[in-house]
């Protein structure tokens, strides 16, 4: 059973804000998804390799060669919150 508390915790881990009616709806929805997973769990997959990637490619490397980086100005174009060449964020205290 997925409780509202479960949904709230997952939402907070994912930094998602949910309205009450959404929490209720999602609890039911997640329940359905987990039911389906339970169905899958019954299958015998002992002889199947886990699929971490859909494509049959391997070993795609890059040589250790320097390429130009963005300028500080260009890097900071993606934010309005900047100071002293840095991205400015709400104060983080550990």
């Amino acid at each position: 059973m997925i409780s509202k508390e479960n949904v709230k915790q997952v939402a907070s881990l994912s930094r998602i804000h949910l309205k009450d009616e959404e929490i209720e709806f999602l609890a039911k929805d997640l329940e359905k998804i987990l039911d389906y997973i339970k169905k899958l769990e019954k299958l015998d997959i002992s002889s199947v390799e886990p699929t971490s990637h859909a494509l049959p490619t391997k070993d795609v490397f890059r040589e250790d060669v320097v390429k130009p980086s963005l300028s500080q100005k260009d890097a900071l174009k993606i934010t309005q919150n900047k100071e002293k060449g840095s991205f400015k964020v709400p104060k983080i205290i550990e």
């Binding site: 840095s86 991205f87 400015k88 964020v89 709400p90 983080i92």
Partner: peptide
């Protein structure tokens, strides 16, 4: 002093 932190990537 300030109320923000700065990030250097």
């Amino acid at each position: 002093e300030s109320s923000s932190s700065l990030v250097d990537y």
